[in-house]
Design a protein around this nucleic acid. Structure first.
Length: 314
RNA sequence: CGCGGGAUAGAGCAGUUGGCAGCUCGCCAGGCCCAUAACCUGGAGGUCGCGGGUUCGAGUCCCGCUCCCGCAA
């Protein structure tokens, strides 16, 4: 059996870890994941999903170094790492330094949620939907010194559906990675697959997202805004300001607009709230949530929110 | 105990200095129309989140509790 150590933290990594453990060809010696963090409104200390999964899978050696520079962690990984065939990194959340990449015999393998070299960086799934890409997928690659830059071992493609959200694509890609990872890793370690250099000239990158990135610019065309709403659902979410309050927009539909309305102008379309966007387009708000209240349908929102018409959002 | 908003009819909301529980939509019955996600008439539907307290009287004021949510992390 090939000896590996798994580095991972988020939900995206859980199916991959599960697949490797259950495959039978790999001995997952240990799991390295982020420390338990405060989560939610009451800042409850919560273990990362990978730690929970590792426990369920019966992996007893789970390491959660605050920093990879931690002396105890370093001495452990340096002694065990050299006896490993490979490390596998999925949604770990830290950049691995070169000395660590050099430890295992065959290097470090990564699962990335895009068709590299398109969308290098920390938000590839959102980026693909927001850009209106026809397809996305998972790339399994060897990690090198630069971000998502290493040679490719295998790729799995999938079409992006017209109603695809960041959430749905995230979940689908996590499973796609699951199906490809054990075979690709085994083939690589057995020498049946060789890494292929990326086409660096056609690379695109995406950035780390914050809540502010979800603030809607109503001067953009409705098509772009609608994609952004799907891409950023559920994280970081799209929102706007109405009457000084934050209005989250979970789901919207593009309609033909009215040139008489300036971008940001609110109106009612077939009993649903709508907002004028750029280039004479408009957006019907299907599922929205005002600050402090639960999420409701647009039609329901308009019934209780007096004066939606004649307002402007910003 | 990080900051803040909320719980009122099936849905979404309003409710002023405490004084008969309201609005829009939906629902039921009837009417009108070539027609309607249109219009008209009538009707049903609430233990105002839960538990205490103040008061002649509490949706409203005070105390405690439960649940939902925005920000922050």
């Amino acid at each position: 059996m090939s000896r590996i150590i798994f580095f991972g933290t988020g939900d995206f990594a859980v199916p991959s870890l599960t697949a490797l453990v259950k495959d039978g060809r790999f001995d997952v010696l240990a799991v390295v994941t982020q420390p338990d963090r405060p989560v939610g409104r009451h800042a409850t200390i919560t273990p990362p999903p990978v730690k929970v999964a590792a426990t369920i899978l019966g992996i007893t050696d789970v390491r959660q170094p605050e920093t990879l520079k931690d002396a105890g962690f370093q001495s452990w990984i340096k002694s065990v790492g050299r006896s490993c065939d490979a490390f596998v990194v999925v949604s770990y959340g830290k950049i691995l330094p070169q000395w660590l990449l050099d430890l295992p015999k065959e290097g470090v393998v990564n699962v990335h949620g895009s068709l590299l070299p398109r969308w290098r960086g920390p938000s590839p799934i959102q980026a693909a939907i927001a850009a209106g890409d026809a397809k996305s997928g998972v790339t399994i690659m060897k990690i090198d010194a630069e971000m998502d830059h290493g040679p490719i071992l295998s790729t799995v493609e999938t079409q992006i559906a017209p109603d695809e959200t960041g959430s749905s694509l995230h979940d689908r890609l996590a499973v796609l990675g699951t199906e490809a990872l054990p075979k690709t890793l085994a083939d690589f370690l057995d020498g049946r697959v060789s890494p292929v250099e990326q086409d660096h000239a056609s690379a695109t990158t995406c950035k780390i997202l914050t809540r502010d990135d979800g603030k809607i610019d109503w001067t953009r065309p409705a098509t772009d805004i609608e994609r952004l709403i799907r891409a950023y659902n559920p994280w970081p979410g799209c929102w706007t300001l109405v009457g000084g309050k934050r209005l989250k927009i979970h789901k919207a539909s593009v309609i033909a607009g009215d040139d008489a309305f300036k971008p940001g102008q609110c109106f009612v379309f077939e009993k649903q709230p709508a907002v004028a966007c750029g280039e004479g387009t408009a957006l019907v708000l299907d599922e929205i949530q005002i600050e402090g209240r639960a999420s409701v349908s647009g039609a329901a929102f308009v019934k209780g929110f007096t004066g939606w018409e004649d307002r402007r959002v910003a």
